[in-house]
Amino acid sequence: MTVAARAPYDFKPRDLMENFHGKQIVYAAWDGHLLFAASFLICVPPETSFRELVEGPLAQLLSIDPDAAAIDWAAVQWLKGNQPFSPDFDQSLVANGIGHKEQIRFRTPGLNSITAAA
């Protein structure tokens, strides 16, 4: 469907990548770890390697969860845009197909000390 309007109605999105001064947004969520109320918004250059994203800003944000130190990154299951995904840790976000505003999620089966009951 399209908007009901009396004249051509076409405006620029407010969150285009060009507004972020060479950076992009990645949304990241740790499934089953709902101490974190929502996905994290992380703003990094697209050349950032997947490893740098995970070991840098993501690990830092996760550190307040009691399970964070026990994550075995080699065994983590990933999703990108809600589909299974196998990232190459040493490639950039671009090379991994993680575009602007992409959502990544990860699962750590067996590791869930707070919401295990859930």
Binding site: A29, A37, A38, S39, F40, L41, L61, I64, Q103
Partner: peptide, 11 residues
């Protein structure tokens, strides 16, 4: 002494 503060912004 470890107050739970999430400094990540949200989606």
């Amino acid at each position: 002494g470890k107050p739970f503060k999430n400094f990540g912004l949200a989606k």
